[in-house]
Amino acid sequence: MTEQEFVDIVPQLRALALQKALSYPSASDWADDVAQDSLIKMWALRESVSSRQHALGLVATMARHLTIDRLRKEHTVGLEQARNIAATERASERMEEESYGKWLDKALKKLPPTEYQVLHLRQVEKLSAEEIAAIVGISPRSVGTLLSRARKRLLEQIKKGKCL
């Protein structure tokens, strides 16, 4: 394709490149840039272009690829940005854990002393009902009843949203 032939079809090539770029979401801000870049690349290839149809096909493909490249770059999160996001999430998780820990401490302090002791021996120290019964001085069956009551009270506090 000669320079004059290329100059003659530039408006048509530009319109096609612009149309291809605008066919993608959020490309309206830089669609003109994509069209311009497509025409620059076409100018460099003009000698190897055999016909008007060939030029139209090439510019459409170039515009599509350039648009996709831009969209990918927009959605790529940089390494530093990813580190900041991860650090923020870890800090947020630590704050939540501390908040839950404080809530649990408050909720446990509200339990009657025997229920608290039985719950602590079972959940923290992992003792059996018989071992707890021997320590507290109650029957193993009472241990189960006290555990059930303590857990039920905690569940009620969770449902009511108390101590949060």
Rank of each mutant, 00 (worst) to 15 (best):
Y100C: 09
S142L: 11
R46Y: 09
R149N: 14
Q19L: 05
W103H: 10
A91E: 11
R72D: 10
S50K: 13
V136F: 08
G101V: 03
E47Y: 08
S26H: 10
L121T: 02
T114Y: 04
E130V: 12
V118S: 02
I40T: 13
R153Q: 14
K41M: 12
V10T: 10
R122Q: 06
Q157P: 00
P140G: 09
L13P: 03
D8I: 07
A129R: 10
G137H: 10
Q117V: 05
T61H: 10
P113H: 12
Q123A: 09
Q157Y: 11
L66D: 01
L108W: 02
P113L: 14
K110Y: 12
H75F: 09
I132A: 01
D105E: 11
S148L: 12
R151Y: 05
V49H: 10
E156D: 15
M62Y: 14
A17W: 02
V124H: 06
W103M: 14
R90V: 05
K159I: 08
D29C: 08
L58N: 06
L71N: 06
E131G: 02
S28D: 05
D69W: 00
E93Y: 02
T67N: 01
E156Y: 03
G137I: 08
E97A: 15
I85S: 00
V118I: 13
Q117Y: 06
V34R: 06
S92M: 13
K160I: 04
V34A: 12
I132V: 11
L22H: 03
S128D: 08
E93P: 00
P11Y: 00
S38M: 08
E80V: 01
S139G: 15
V77L: 08
P25A: 13
Q36C: 06
L104Q: 14
D32K: 10
S142R: 14
L56P: 04
Q81M: 03
A17L: 09
V49D: 07
V77S: 06
H120D: 13
V34H: 09
K152V: 06
K109Q: 15
V59Y: 00
R149Y: 12
